[in-house]
Simulated assay, not measured.
Amino acid sequence: MTSPQHAHAGLDGLVMGDAFGDSWFTRSDENAEELWAARAPRPRPWLWTDDSAMAFVLFAHLTARDEIRPDALAEELAAEYARDPRRKYGPSMHGVLRDIREGGDWRAVTSARFGGQGSYGNGAAMRVAPLGAWFRDDLPAARDQATLSALTTHAHPEAVAGAVAVAVAAALAAAGASQGAPSRPEFLREVADQVPDGDVRSRLLVAATFPERTSVRHAATVLGSGTLISAPDTVPFALWSAAGHLDDLTEALWQTVAGWGDRDTTCAIAGGVVASRTGTAGVPTSWHDAREPIPTWSRWNPPAAMTTGSRS
């Protein structure tokens, strides 16, 4: 049984996180940490990036098919890239999506990257939270469907593991929406239980051992916060941050952006996971107003109650 309502919320949270995080790539003459300490949001507009662009494609694909069909998904991702390639896609994805658009078979295109290893970037993980929420009642399906969605662009096992971890986290967050939030270590271990052995899983288990008062700076230093733009360097930190604020999307995004790495992507991941549980009603209305709208072609059309912000 699938859960489109929670997936709608997860997509909304992902896009909010993406746009909020991207707004914090400040000018060189600005002190981001001082601005963050003042809790003053960045000037509007907040534009979404490739994180959201690929999430829209994935969400529309699920809405139409209720499952991942890799051949079609690869073509759809490539078509959206061709329509708007200026959404901050990484260098590797420019090549992958261009080659697929020009007729290359996605299996050959993705597996040929990086000397035949495939990309282990964070692109498969950053778009996948709504898929996890979609399959919230079936963890094996969330895991398997996330794997299929990742392989269309990222052949490396660590990139796939990152996507699985985020999808499972979103599924767990959505499935537990009517219950009290689990502890951070409990949540991270439950996610890790579904992730293949490797660096992503190992760092999730390290994150689960952090003391309760661990600072964002320490977590980002130990786990990485996306500076390397890899799945192992991005996903564990983003999920550690989300796991500590499962009932507060606004605070989750404030804390996640303070990792200062690939901040649009870490916030997209954390936002998608937390919103799969909470929706986005607790986010200030001013944030919704600042964020670039979600395009109608994505088939995103959630109930009003899941998109109305607070009046702060």
Rank of each mutant, 00 (worst) to 15 (best):
G13M: 15
A169Q: 09
L246K: 05
A171G: 11
A53W: 03
A129P: 02
F135I: 08
I100E: 01
Q5I: 11
M16F: 15
W46C: 06
A159L: 12
V257Y: 05
R136D: 11
E212S: 11
W260E: 06
A155E: 06
V283H: 04
F135W: 10
D264H: 09
A82G: 02
A146E: 08
G162Y: 10
P91N: 11
V96C: 00
H94S: 03
T308P: 00
D264S: 15
S225F: 04
D71K: 10
T308Q: 14
D71T: 13
G132S: 12
A7M: 07
A174P: 02
G309L: 05
G13S: 15
A275D: 06
L151R: 15
S312R: 14
G21A: 04
D138N: 13
A64W: 05
M54D: 08
A19S: 14
D289W: 05
D12L: 15
L148R: 12
L246S: 05
D22A: 11
W254H: 10
D105A: 13
V274Y: 05
H61M: 08
R98E: 11
R213C: 01
A207F: 07
P85M: 12
W287C: 02
E251D: 11
A305P: 00
P303H: 09
D137Q: 04
A169N: 08
P185Y: 07
N122I: 02
Y120N: 13
P293A: 09
A270E: 11
R98D: 10
S178K: 03
P43A: 13
S230Y: 02
E212P: 00
V257G: 04
V164D: 09
I68E: 02
R263W: 02
S52H: 05
A207P: 09
E75Y: 05
A38M: 11
A165P: 14
A60N: 14
D51C: 05
A270D: 10
A141Q: 11
A53F: 03
I68C: 01
D50A: 09
L77T: 01
R201Q: 14
A275R: 03
V160T: 12
P157W: 12
P157R: 12
I68T: 08
E158F: 07
L14M: 15
L148S: 03
A82C: 06
G226Q: 09
P196Y: 10
D71G: 08
D66T: 13
D99F: 00
R69I: 12
A243H: 08
R311S: 12
L253V: 04
A125N: 00
G272E: 08
L205G: 06
A174M: 07
A133I: 04
G180E: 11
G13A: 15
G21K: 03
S28F: 12
D264P: 05
A78K: 04
L58D: 05
S225K: 04
L35K: 14
D29P: 00
W134R: 01
A258R: 15
R83C: 02
P85D: 13
T63L: 11
A270N: 09
